[in-house]
Amino acid sequence: MTQTAKIAWKDVTIRFGRQTVLDGLRLEAAEGRSLVIIGGSGEGKSVMLKTALGLIAPDKGRVEIDGRAVRPGQEDDPGVAQIGMLFQSGALFDSLPVWKNVSFRLLHRDHMQADEARERALEALDQVDLDHDVADKRPSQLSGGMLKRAALARAIAARPKILFFDEPTTGLDPVTADVINKLISRQVKQLGATAVSITHDMVSMRAIADDVAMIKDGGILWSGPLNGVETCENSEVCRFVRGESEIA
């Protein structure tokens, strides 16, 4: 990674009670590149993203965006304000129709007029391959895969400089997953965004990653460009990607 770091996890330690989830984790996400984080279930991938969003305060260390430490709990933090986040569970507001969800930031933060915001919401729905009649539905009326895509539309609608995707293709059919993968690549390549994605989908990883990092036991086991995974630089990463368990 030769570019400057857009986001840097600096010795981040997170504990829940007696459980240490992240243990001095260090990682950088280079500006304008797509970083994919892989690792076993429950290793702390989602927690990593939430720390960078200021939703979880680190017990030790800090996360820096553009070289400035993220202040936990501050919704107007200039670093966090650049991030569009797709939550693993979608986290759409079920009291609002889909289009108001998608354009929430435009309506409330950027004070855009309703018709203009709706246009932008429809545009974002197009990008995630959702029909316009979804716009006026409530999140509770959507299928799991549609929810995921609507949530993805919300993450990209305000054209953020940083994108966080927590399992963007989970629960999608292969064709839709391909649409989403291409969308993520396009956001990075055309708009120059920095993307950090968590995925268990190795097809997706190959499609969207410039760089890959594998998390294990609270730290980064290996990180490097995608071809490092393909050339099997680290045997454990290699096994993980091939889906081989350690039990012979």
Binding site: K50, L53, G54, L55, E75, D76, V80, A81, I83, G84, M85, F87, S89, A91, L92, F93, D94, S95, F104, R105, H108, R109, R154
Partner: peptide, 25 residues
């Protein structure tokens, strides 16, 4: 119940990431 369900389904976290203070909204 409503706000508790929003907490449980990460909607309050989502508000945060949309630069909106849940206290205000």
């Amino acid at each position: 119940a409503e706000i508790g369900a929003m907490r449980a389904t990460e909607q309050i976290d989502a508000l945060h990431t949309l630069s909106t203070d849940p206290m205000r909204y």
